[in-house]
Nucleic acid binder design. Structure first.
Length: 851
RNA sequence: GUCGGCGUGGCGGAACGGCAGACGCGCUAGCUUGAGGGGCUAGUGUCCGAACGGACGUGAGGGUUCAAAUCCCUCCGCCGACACCA
C-alpha cells in the first residue's frame, strides 16, 4: 500500500482531467440539464478562503448532480471591470488592464489547484471585448425598449472615486460602497436604467422564489419599499394669499389624517422654493436653512439628535378636504426624491411632524384617537375642530377613531383603513386626489465618469441630439492606452470621442462615461450558456434550455445590488423576446463568511489565511473537506488550523480503510503494520460484524444522499466518519473470515461518497485501490436499500410520566400491541400496580406511559 | 425606530415535537515508539456517589403537550439589513 500523498496525486489528476476534457459540457448530451453557478470573482488579488468556500460548495453540488445523471453546466469567469483596477494601476504605475489580467491568471491557477470541475472553455471575462460588446448590444436593446434615459437628477457623488453612484451603492451611513467616503448630493445629467418600471413585478415575483432564503427576499422587499396611499392636490395661493390655479401634489399613506394637516412642507431643494421667497422678507431665513441642509452630508444627517430645521416661505396652500389655508414651510427632513418632495404635515399623527410643530409652535389638532384614550370621550362625534393641541408627549400613528374630521368623523382611522379609503374616494370624486402606490426604489444610475468600464454606446450630435451607436458599429472598443496614472479618462482622448454623427454625418461627440460594473454582472450567467456566439449575446434556444440557474451560490452582501439588478435584466430581456423565463435564479444559497477569531479577514488587519499555504501543507482535498465540515454553508465559519489537521487525518483514515478493506497490507510511513486481526473471532461473530457493517453502509449512503440534497455537507461528512469508524471493527476480522464482496462494496461506496468533496483522492483510490476504469466522477451515485439499514431488534426508551425510567429491546417489526406489552412488563416494578392512564407508542423510538 | 436572524459542553457544531450534546477539535489515561510525530484503545455536560445509580441541564421566565432545544407568549443578550420613506 502506498502512502496518501496529496501533493503527488492532485496535480497528476488535474492534468489528466484537463487532457481528457472531463468537465466539458455540451447541449448535445441528452441527460437532463442542471445549471450550478457560483458568483464569479472580482480579480482584486489572490483567491481567499471566502472563494474557496463558495466554490467548494458549488463544486460538490455539481459533481453530485453529475453522478446522479445530470448534464451539469458549471462555469466560471471574472467580473473584471471596476475601480480597484484603476486605483491599483495608479499605485503601481501600471495599467488597469495589466493588473486585472495578471490577477486573473493567478486566480485561475489557484482555482485549478483546488480541482474545481469547471468547463474552462466557457469562461468569460467581462473586460474582454468579446464580452462587453454584447453588454453594449443589450444597452441598445434596452434603449429601444424605452428603459434607458439620460436626465437631470439629484445623484450621489463620491468625491474620492470622482464618480456618481447608484442608490444601492451608497452603504452604511451614507458612504461609497467601494471606499466608504461620505457621498455628496449633486444635481447632474446622468444615464439611468428604468428599473422602477419593474418595481411591482420585482416585488410580486419574490413570492415565487421559494428557493431563496427568506431574509434575502425580505431585504429586497424592503428595498423596493412599496407603500399604498394617495396623491392629493393642494391649491397654491399667490403672494397675497389668494388661491391660484396651480396645485402642489403630495403623497401620503394616511389620507384619514387629512383634517389634521396644520402646515405644509417642501424639500429644501424643491424647485418652487426659489420662486416663493426671492425678494421677500422670508428669503434670508429660507436660504439659511437650504444651505444648512445642503452642507450636511448623509452621514451627518443620520447621526445625532436629528434636530429638525425649517423656515416659513411666506406662502400658503389650501387643504382640499376642508378649504383650510395652511402655511408652506421648508424642512430638511423632507426629501426631494421620495414621493413628490412635498408633504402634508399632520403633527398629531406623525412623530417628525410633531417634533417640528413643537419646535416652531404650530397647531397639533388630533384627528385619529386610539380606542381607550380618555380624549376620545371628549371628542367622539365632534365633526368640527374644537381642539388645536394634544396633551400627548408624542404623535399617535396607530389605528383609532377619526375625530374633528367633518363627515368622516367616527370612521375607523389608520393605515389602509376604511376612513382613509373614504377620504380618498371623496377626493377622487372632486378630482383633487386618487389612490396610488409609491415605491422607495429609484431608477438605477448606470453612468460612471471612469475609464475602466464598458463604454456607453451613445453619441451627442448638435443637430440630432443624443443618438445611439448603430448596432453594426459595435463594439465601441475601450482604448488600451489611457493613462490613469496621469488622471486621464476617455474625456481626455479626442481620438476616442471625436466621431461623425451616425445619423447626419456631421462631427459629433462620443459619450465618454462608462457603465456601472454591475451592468456586466447582471447578465454573465446568460452568456455562459452560449459563450462563443458571435452574432448575439446568446441564442434564445440555448439560453432557454439551460436557464434559469438551478442553484446559485454566493455571499449575502449581494442580496440587494447584484441579485436585484439581475432580476431586472432578466425581466427586461424577456420583454424584448430575448429569453423565455421570468426569474434568473431558482434556488439561492447565501454562504456565510470565513472569519478568524470572530473577525473578518482582511489585508489591512493582517489576519489573512492564504488558501495556497494550506494547499501546500495539507492538499486541496483536505482544505475543501475542511471548509465544508466546519459549519453549515449558510453560517459564518471560524478558521481553525487544528480542525484542518483533523480532516487531513480523516482523509488518511479513508485512504487506509479502503486499502485494508480490499485486503492490502496496511502499514504506516515506517512500515509498521497497522491492521491487527482479532484471531479469536469465531465464524458467527465475524458474520455478525459483517451484518452490522452492511447496515451501517446502507444507513450512511441514505444519510449522505439526504444531506447532500439539503446541502448539509457538515453532517454528510460526519456520517462518512461514522462509516469509517464502523469499518474499523470489521477490519479486525481476519482475512480468511471476511466477506470479500461486502468489503469491496463498502470500499467502493466510500470512494463514491467522498468523490464530490475530495475529488483527487477519490479518483486515485478508484483506479489504484479499486482497479476500476473510467473516472469516478462519471460513475453513478451509489444506491441503497433502506430496509437493509434496519437491525432485527431495536432498543426503546420507556418513559414514565415524561421521564425515561427503563429500556426494552423488541423486534424491529413488533406490533404496537407487542411493544406496549413489553414496555409495561419492563416498567411493572416501577409502576407498582397503580392504574395506567395512557400509553403512547412511538414506533422504533419510545413508549410513554402515564399513570 | 422598522424588518430579519441567532442564543445548546472548553471549542466548531448534531438532534421529522420523541433517549440533548451525533461527528470532529481539544483534553486525560493506557498501549505502540529510543524520543517526537503518527497510529490504536478507553474516557470526557454539571453536581452527588468508590460503584450500581441519581439529580440538574439547550439565554431568563411563563404556557401548550404523555413528551419542548424544537411550538406559543413575555423579557434579556448578540449579529445583520434598512433607516427623517411622509
Amino acid at each position: 500500500m502506498q502512502q496518501y500523498n496529496p501533493h503527488e496525486i492532485e496535480p497528476r489528476w488535474q492534468a489528466e482531467w484537463e487532457r481528457s476534457h472531463l468537465n466539458r459540457v455540451s447541449e448535445a448530451d441528452d441527460k437532463p440539464q442542471y445549471y450550478a453557478l457560483e458568483m464569479f470573482p472580482y480579480p482584486s488579488g489572490d483567491i481567499h478562503l471566502g472563494h474557496v468556500r463558495n466554490y467548494s460548495i458549488g463544486d460538490v453540488i455539481s459533481r453530485y448532480k453529475r453522478m446522479q445523471g445530470f448534464n451539469v453546466l458549471h462555469p466560471i469567469g471574472w467580473d473584471a471591470f471596476g475601480m480597484p483596477a484603476e486605483n491599483a494601476a495608479i499605485k503601481q504605475e501600471s495599467t488597469p488592464g495589466a493588473w486585472t489580467y495578471a490577477n486573473i491568471d493567478r486566480q485561475r491557477a489557484s482555482l485549478k489547484r483546488l480541482g474545481f470541475s469547471y468547463d474552462w472553455d466557457r469562461s468569460v471575462v467581462t473586460s474582454d471585448v468579446e464580452y462587453y460588446h454584447w453588454g453594449q448590444w443589450i444597452f441598445l436593446k434596452l434603449w429601444e425598449a424605452g428603459l434607458v434615459e439620460r436626465r437631470n437628477s439629484p445623484v450621489n457623488w463620491c468625491p474620492s472615486c470622482a464618480t456618481v453612484l447608484a442608490n444601492e451603492q451608497v452603504v452604511g451611513e451614507g458612504g461609497c460602497w467601494r471606499c466608504h467616503t461620505a457621498v455628496e448630493r449633486k444635481v447632474l445629467e446622468q444615464w439611468f436604467f428604468k428599473i422602477t418600471d419593474y418595481a411591482q413585478e420585482l416585488l410580486d415575483d419574490l413570492d415565487s422564489l421559494d428557493g431563496w432564503p427568506e431574509r434575502v427576499r425580505q431585504m429586497q422587499a424592503n428595498w423596493i419599499g412599496r407603500s399604498t396611499g394617495a396623491e392629493i392636490d393642494f391649491t397654491l395661493c399667490d403672494a397675497a394669499g389668494e388661491p391660484t390655479d396651480e396645485k402642489i401634489r403630495v403623497f401620503t399613506t394616511r389620507a384619514d389624517t387629512l383634517f389634521g394637516c396644520s402646515f405644509f412642507l417642501l424639500a429644501p431643494e424643491h424647485p418652487l422654493v426659489e420662486d416663493f421667497v426671492a425678494g421677500t422678507a422670508y428669503e434670508a431665513e429660507v436660504r439659511r436653512v437650504v444651505k444648512l441642509a445642503a452642507s450636511a452630508t448623509a452621514v451627518e444627517r443620520s447621526k445625532g439628535e436629528r434636530e429638525k430645521n425649517g423656515a416659513f416661505t411666506g406662502r400658503f396652500v389650501v387643504n382640499p378636504i376642508n378649504g383650510e389655508k395652511v402655511p408652506i414651510w421648508i424642512s430638511d427632513y423632507v426629501m426631494m426624491d421620495y414621493g413628490t418632495g412635498a408633504v402634508m404635515a399632520v403633527p398629531s399623527g406623525d412623530q417628525r411632524d410633531y417634533e417640528f410643530a413643537r419646535k416652531y409652535d404650530l397647531p397639533i389638532p388630533p384627528v385619529v384617537v386610539a380606542e381607550g384614550d380618555p380624549m376620545l370621550l371628549l371628542l367622539r362625534g365632534n365633526a368640527r375642530r374644537v381642539m388645536d393641541d394634544v396633551p400627548w408627549e408624542c404623535a399617535y400613528d396607530g389605528p383609532g377613531v377619526m375625530v374633528q374630521s367633518g363627515a368622516f368623523t367616527g370612521l375607523p382611522g389608520g393605515k389602509d383603513s376604511e376612513g382613509a379609503q373614504a377620504v380618498i374616494d371623496q377626493l377622487a370624486l372632486e378630482g383633487v386626489g386618487q389612490a396610488t402606490v409609491n415605491f422607495r426604489l429609484r431608477d438605477w444610475l448606470i453612468s460612471r465618469q471612469r475609464y475602466w468600464g464598458n463604454p456607453i454606446p451613445a453619441i451627442y450630435c448638435d443637430v440630432c441630439g443624443i443618438v445611439p451607436v448603430p448596432q453594426e458599429d459595435l463594439p465601441v472598443v475601450l482604448p488600451k492606452d489611457v493613462d490613469v496614472t496621469a488622471g486621464e479618462t476617455l474625456a481626455d482622448r479626442p481620438e476616442f470621442y471625436e466621431v461623425d454623427c451616425p445619423v447626419c454625418g456631421k462631427p459629433a461627440h462620443r459619450e465618454t462615461d462608462t457603465m456601472d460594473t454591475f451592468t456586466c454582472s447582471s447578465w454573465y450567467y446568460l452568456r455562459y450558456t452560449d459563450p462563443h456566439n458571435k452574432e448575439l449575446p446568446f441564442a434564445r434556444t440555448v439560453v432557454d434550455g439551460w436557464m434559469p440557474v438551478d442553484q446559485y451560490i454566493g455571499g449575502i452582501e449581494h442580496a440587494i445590488l447584484h441579485l436585484l439588478y439581475s432580476r431586472f435584466f432578466t425581466k427586461a430581456l424577456r420583454d424584448q423576446g430575448l429569453l423565455g423565463f421570468d426569474e434568473p435564479f431558482t434556488n439561492l444559497l447565501t454562504q456565510g463568511m470565513v472569519k478568524l477569531e470572530g473577525e473578518v479577514m482582511s489585508k489591512s488587519k493582517g489576519n489573512v489565511i492564504a488558501p495556497e499555504d494550506m494547499i501546500e501543507r495539507f492538499g486541496a482535498d483536505a482544505l475543501r473537506v475542511y471548509i465544508l465540515f466546519m459549519a453549515p454553508p449558510d453560517k459564518d465559519l471560524d478558521w481553525s488550523q487544528e480542525s484542518l489537521e483533523g480532516i487531513y487525518r480523516f482523509l488518511n483514515r479513508v485512504w487506509r480503510s479502503v486499502f485494508d478493506l480490499l485486503g492490502a497490507e496496511v502499514v504506516d510511513e515506517e512500515g509498521t503494520r497497522l491492521s491487527l486481526y482479532d484471531t479469536n473471532l469465531d465464524e458467527a461473530a465475524a458474520l455478525e460484524r459483517g451484518k452490522q457493517l452492511n447496515r451501517e453502509l446502507h444507513r450512511v449512503i441514505g444519510k449522505v444522499t439526504a444531506d447532500f440534497d439539503r446541502f448539509n455537507f457538515n453532517t454528510a461528512i460526519s456520517a462518512l466518519m461514522e462509516l469509517v469508524n464502523a469499518t474499523g471493527a470489521y477490519l479486525k476480522v481476519p482475512l480468511d473470515r471476511r466477506d470479500e464482496a461486502l468489503a469491496r462494496e463498502v470500499a467502493r461506496a466510500l470512494v463514491l461518497l467522498v468523490a464530490p468533496m475530495a475529488p483527487h483522492m477519490a479518483e486515485e483510490l478508484w483506479h489504484v485501490a479499486l482497479d476500476e476504469t473510467g473516472s469516478v466522477h462519471l460513475a453513478p451515485w451509489p444506491s441503497f436499500d433502506p430496509s437493509k439499514a434496519i437491525a432485527d431488534t431495536v432498543e426503546l426508551a420507556v418513559q414514565l410520566n415524561g421521564k425515561v425510567r427503563a429500556r426494552v429491546v423488541v423486534a424491529t417489526d413488533a406490533s404496537e400491541f407487542e411493544v406496549r406489552e413489553a414496555a409495561l412488563a419492563a416498567a411493572a416494578a416501577l409502576i407498582g400496580g397503580r392504574p395506567i392512564e395512557k400509553v403512547v407508542v412511538v414506533p422504533r423510538k419510545l413508549v410513554s406511559i402515564v399513570y
